[in-house]
Structure formats: structure tokens, C-alpha cells
Design a protein around this nucleic acid. Structure first.
Ligand SMILES: [Mn+2]
Ligand SMILES: [Mn+2]
Ligand SMILES: [Zn+2]
Ligand SMILES: [Zn+2]
Lengths: 139, 139
DNA sequence: ATGATAATGAAATACATTTTCAATAAGGAA
DNA sequence: TTCCTTATTGAAAATGTATTTCATTATCAT
């Protein structure tokens, strides 16, 4: 089943109606290799659905975020872009030139977190990790 | 030499004039254990310098940030808080209850970054790492 | 097909940040 | 010290981003 359909099913299960604006946004988010801002989505969406409203973009992103399907990407230039969420324990790697985003896995901070806990008493519950660099094409 | 003086000297070296608003903001940032938003700084600053303008807070934070003396802290709730910058290779650890921020060192992502590079071709130039949890007092 | 109501888009509002500009004050020169 | 240049300041206006309101539209269970 295409990933867009999976997302729409989750929306349906949550009691949401499946509408043209939502289909459009889901499709864009599922297939984008770059993080997209609400305005990016608004512009891209209007190519196939000219009536799209910017408010609907914000509202749909909020729902997708609550469902864990998209997540906000934080960057030096600003923090209002979204990317399809990770599968399991993954983190984002961003190309600073073209904006391409990719997930990686395999980080292990267990030892570090344990050390920090015993040295400072801090109880770590969550970690954010993000890598910045140049993708294969941009080097 | 008190850390505030060091910051002011750096400002001076950069050609900036040392003013009362700048002294006030530098002092607050140097001594705060919590990340502070522009409005936080504005309110705290007016306690000792009632004429402080919010615009000056923004402008001073921008200069301090350019000098590498403060850095922006990203959180789920928003990304408009600032904290004194790390000394060398350190990352932030935040208490989700009281907001206390502390730096830690000792993370080593060398092996991970090398693995990612050979597997994906991505050339990693920078990493962001942030830990979230509960400080000793808040557990 | 019909109807209840969830979803939509336009407009108004809210909030964070930046720009503009006339008045002020820092600090080098005299 | 006093004077002068000009960097800095704060108020107000402007900008950019996000949210709320509300009448209209469209989904989908019946
Ligand atoms: Mn991890
Ligand atoms: Mn590190
Ligand atoms: Zn690239
Ligand atoms: Zn705490």
C-alpha cells in the first residue's frame, strides 16, 4: 500500500474526514526529500489544488504532527519546516546546500547518558541529535 | 576578571560602544542558569534599567550571538530562548520541569559520523545534540 | 439522496521580530 | 574638561508567522 494511503487511513481511524486538501498535503509530505515550510506546502499544493488555503496547511500539519507522521525541523535559519517523521529510533541529517534531509540510525548514547547521570544527577529522558553537512551531490 | 567584563571587552574589540543597556543584558546572560527569551531579558533588565527597550534586547542578543557568546536554545515549545554559549565542545542538557540548563562534554560521535559517511556518502560538518530530562532537584 | 456536522478559506487577530527614524549618549580629539 | 562625530537607543510602524472566528462547503453515515 502506498505510504500516502497509510497516512490517510491513520487520519480516518482518528475520526478525520478525508478531503482533497488533506490528500494533497499528505502526498507532498510523504514524497518530499526536503523539509518544507507551511508556505512551501501552500505553494506546491496550489499547483494541483488551487483553492488550498494557508490555514488548512497549518491545521493539517498540526494533525499530522499529533499523529507522529511529520516532525518539525530545527535549523539555524529558522524552525518552521516539517519533514516526514522518523521510523523508530532515527535522527535527521541535513544538507546545508540543497536542503536534502535523510534519516540515519545507529547512534548509541547509552554510555554517555549513564555517565552524565552518575556525574551530575541529571536524569535524561530524551535526546535530540541532528547532523549537518553536504550530501553526495553537493560536495 | 569577571566574565561580564570579558564579554564587554570582546564587544569593545569589535568596535562596539559599551552602554548601560548592553552591560545590563550581558550581566543577565552571563549569570543565568536558564535559557532566557527576549521578553524574559526585557523584563529582568528593566528591574535595574527601566528605560530598556525590547528592540535593544534583540539587537544585543544578535551581537552576542555573532561573537559566539550566546546561543539559541531549541525546545518543543519554541525556539526563541538564548543561553550563554558552550566552552569548547559541549552540548546542552535541559531540565523539562524548571528549565535549568547545563553543559556536558564527553560525547564522541566520531565512529558514527564515519560510518554514516561511508554508507551514505554524506559529509558531516557539524552536529547538534541536546539532552532533555530532569535535574537533580526536579526528580 | 439526505442531513448532521467536520472541514474549509477569507478575514481578523495575535504574537515575534525587524525596520525606520529622530533623539541621545559614548568616547576620541582638542 | 568641553566639543564633536556618530554609534546606539527607544517608540512606532512594518513585516512575517501562526491562530481564531465564522459563514459556506463538502464528507460520509444513514
Ligand atoms: Mn538517538
Ligand atoms: Mn558533540
Ligand atoms: Zn545537498
Ligand atoms: Zn529542574
Amino acid at each position: 500500500m502506498p505510504e500516502s494511503e497509510q497516512w490517510l487511513e491513520l487520519l480516518e481511524e482518528k475520526g478525520c474526514r478525508i478531503t482533497e486538501p488533506r490528500r494533497t498535503i499528505v502526498d507532498l509530505m510523504v514524497h518530499s526529500d526536503n523539509a518544507l515550510s507551511p508556505i512551501d506546502l501552500f505553494d506546491k499544493a496550489r499547483a494541483s489544488f488551487p483553492k488550498m488555503g494557508l490555514v488548512t496547511v497549518y491545521r493539517t500539519l498540526e494533525i499530522l504532527n499529533q499523529l507522529g507522521l511529520v516532525e518539525r525541523v530545527h535549523q539555524k535559519g529558522g524552525c518552521h519546516m516539517y519533514l516526514r517523521a522518523a521510523n523508530g529510533h532515527e535522527h535527521i541529517m541535513l544538507c546545508t546546500r540543497c536542503g536534502q534531509a535523510a534519516y540515519f540510525h545507529g547512534d548509541d548514547l547509552g554510555a554517555l547518558i549513564h555517565k552524565i547521570n552518575s556525574e551530575s544527577g541529571f536524569l535524561i529522558q530524551e535526546h535530540w541529535l541532528q547532523l549537518h553537512g553536504l550530501c553526495k551531490n553537493c560536495q
